[in-house]
Amino acid sequence: MTKTNEKIHVLADESLGGIKREYVEVDRKAEVGDKIIVTEGDDFPVGHIDTVAHWYDNYDDGSIDLFEGFDNDIFLDGNREEYRVLEPTNIVHIDGPDGTERYEMVDRKAEVGEKVVVVDDEDSSEEFGNFRIGEVGTVESYATDDTYFGEYANVRVSDGRDIPIYLHEYRVLVPLESSEEEPQPSDPIDVIANLATRVAELERENKRIQKELGWYEVGAGSIANLRNDVADIRHDIAKLEDRIVHDYATNEDVTDFLYEEVKRLQDEIDTLHKDNRRNGEELAKIKDRIDDFQDAENDRIYNLYAITNGKRDEKMFTAEEVATLLNAMRERQ
Rank of each mutant, 00 (worst) to 15 (best):
L265E: 05
R234P: 02
D253K: 12
D146E: 15
D120G: 00
K285M: 04
T324P: 02
K263D: 10
S124D: 04
A153N: 02
E169P: 00
R312F: 15
V174Q: 09
A296M: 11
D146I: 09
E177L: 12
G219Q: 11
F257W: 14
I233Y: 14
D299T: 11
I165A: 00
I165H: 00
E135M: 11
D50C: 04
I192W: 04
H168Q: 07
L258F: 09
S186Y: 10
V85M: 02
M105D: 04
T255R: 05
R171P: 04
D236E: 15
I209N: 05
E201H: 12
V199T: 08
T318V: 03
I74E: 08
F257T: 07
E22L: 05
N72M: 09
E182Q: 09
D34F: 01
T271D: 14
D187M: 13
V10A: 07
I64F: 01
L325G: 00
Y166K: 00
G18S: 05
L272V: 10
D146L: 13
E126N: 07
A143G: 02
S178K: 13
Y152N: 00
V322F: 11
E22H: 11
R80N: 09
E241L: 08
N276G: 02
T4F: 13
D313C: 00
A249T: 10
G18C: 06
P183I: 02
Q184C: 04
Y259K: 09
G17N: 03
I269C: 01
V32T: 09
V136T: 01
V172F: 06
A110T: 05
D162E: 15
L195V: 12
S63V: 06
G17V: 02
F128D: 12
E82I: 00
A12W: 08
S63G: 07
N130I: 15
V139G: 00
A12M: 07
D146P: 02
Y142W: 15
R132W: 12
S125K: 07
D77N: 13
L86A: 00
I91Y: 06
G160C: 05
D299K: 08
V155W: 04
L226G: 00
E181I: 00
I244Y: 14
L213I: 12
A153D: 05
L226S: 01
D253A: 10
L167T: 04
Y305C: 03
V38N: 03
K315Y: 07
A306C: 08
T89Y: 04
M329V: 09
T2V: 15
S158K: 12
R198D: 09
